[in-house]
Design a protein around this nucleic acid. Sequence first.
DNA 1: CCTCATTCCTTGAAGCCTAAACTAAACCCG
DNA 2: CGGGTTTAGTTTAGGCTTCAAGGAATGAGG
Lengths: 165, 165
Amino acid sequence: MSVDAETALAHAPPGHKDELRLWLRLLTCTTLIEGEIRTRLRRDFDTTLPRFDLLAALDRAPEGLSLGEVSRRMMVSNGNVTGVAARLEAEGLIERRARPGDRRAQLLRLTAKGRREFARQSAAHEGWIAELLAGVTEVERGALFRLLGHAKISVRNALPPEPNP
Amino acid sequence: MSVDAETALAHAPPGHKDELRLWLRLLTCTTLIEGEIRTRLRRDFDTTLPRFDLLAALDRAPEGLSLGEVSRRMMVSNGNVTGVAARLEAEGLIERRARPGDRRAQLLRLTAKGRREFARQSAAHEGWIAELLAGVTEVERGALFRLLGHAKISVRNALPPEPNP
DNA sequence: CCTCATTCCTTGAAGCCTAAACTAAACCCG
DNA sequence: CGGGTTTAGTTTAGGCTTCAAGGAATGAGG
């Protein structure tokens, strides 16, 4: 994989807007990093990014999270969480227990095994990200972080409003 | 979906590196935009992002592209392209023809119908991106584009080298 | 010509993902 | 209480995605 969509687009007939070029570059960066993280998660831990993300969400919430809360944090559909959680539960990395006072909801929590496993994965993951972004100076990282904050707000404002609990 | 991983992480115990926060914000921005584009492609054109991307790749290459070339440009596996191309071909949006002198390879090209359809989708897509990024000033966009360029180079340099044709 | 490695593509298994339809529980309110 | 609405989660159909295995054509070197 040596040519990406953005690079290819540079050869396209002109007329593409500024915003489109920015979006394609953003997408390229994310895709490159994400792909490498996926590869390494599989290679070193025989796991996947969604599984890692779900463990990460639970690791940050020691009191447990309902499936719906996980789905909101991960920005994926609720049906999706059902499947990923089922696999993690089958492997003993997470457990479900009823939420007292609400028989609809269930709380997901890390098991001891899950906590141990995630700690290993998480440390490696943090190192990988630092490694991939090592060529960006601290000043640049700060600027990027700030600008991406603006972009995030811009996108959220353009999005249809969500139901507010 | 009101809380994302990045926001949730802000409440996490400290110790997370700078790079990790930047990566999560980058991922959030991309996920937000990509999700909205997917939704609108489905809503307005009853299609998907990979299909749109494949048409876009072919639109930029009037002489046609082999499946392998498409897979490199889209940064996905070759097996993946097989499936998406099969569906697009079944709908008459693209066509395959043998590459003269190499019976292994096939060239994919847009049909007239495919070209027409992509023109509609592409115009809408460009507008959507501009709309979502409208809250980012032109100066900021320029800075973002430049900084993301650095990030892209950083990541590529950290990646295992690819076979060079 | 023959062999072996390479390239192009397809297939199959498994997992991820969504939208939509559905069940069950909880809530609201008259 | 009883009806309608909302919320939590599951299921299903269909598409995307990867990896690994494999078939077919090509090409390079003997």
